[in-house]
């Protein structure tokens, strides 16, 4: 049996990779992809602690996270479509309409 610390370490690694992706990418769609990576890292941690504690509540929470991820992808991509239709560009460095 693989100890649960390995799963938690993998979860941390994926979370940090997603965070780096959110920081360094300039395309909005790539930033949303990186947030999907971070959500998956959290899911791995939930299921790993379930395996350690012999419970299934974490898997129920993973179910809710899947629901929220679907809602987030739908809303986020709709916003990207609206932004693209407005500006013909998806670069985050030029999205400065609110800047004085």
């Amino acid at each position: 049996m693989v100890p649960y610390e390995y799963y938690v370490a993998l979860s941390g690694l994926l979370l940090v990779l997603g965070l780096i992706g959110v920081i360094i990418r300039k395309n909005i769609i790539a930033i949303l992809l990186s947030t999907e990576l971070m959500l998956n890292a959290v899911n791995i941690a939930f299921v790993a602690f379930d395996m350690k504690l012999a419970d299934v509540s974490g898997q129920v929470f993973v179910f809710f996270i899947l629901t929220i991820a679907a809602a987030e992808a739908a809303i986020g991509l709709g916003l990207i479509m609206a932004i693209y239709r407005l500006r013909k560009d998806v670069d985050v460095n030029t999205l400065t309409e609110l800047k004085l």
Binding site: V2, Y7, L10, I44, V47, D50, M51, Q59
Partner: peptide, 10 residues
């Protein structure tokens, strides 16, 4: 990985 952890539904 979920399958190896025994969470088949997820």
């Amino acid at each position: 990985l979920f399958f190896t952890m025994g969470a088949e539904l997820i």
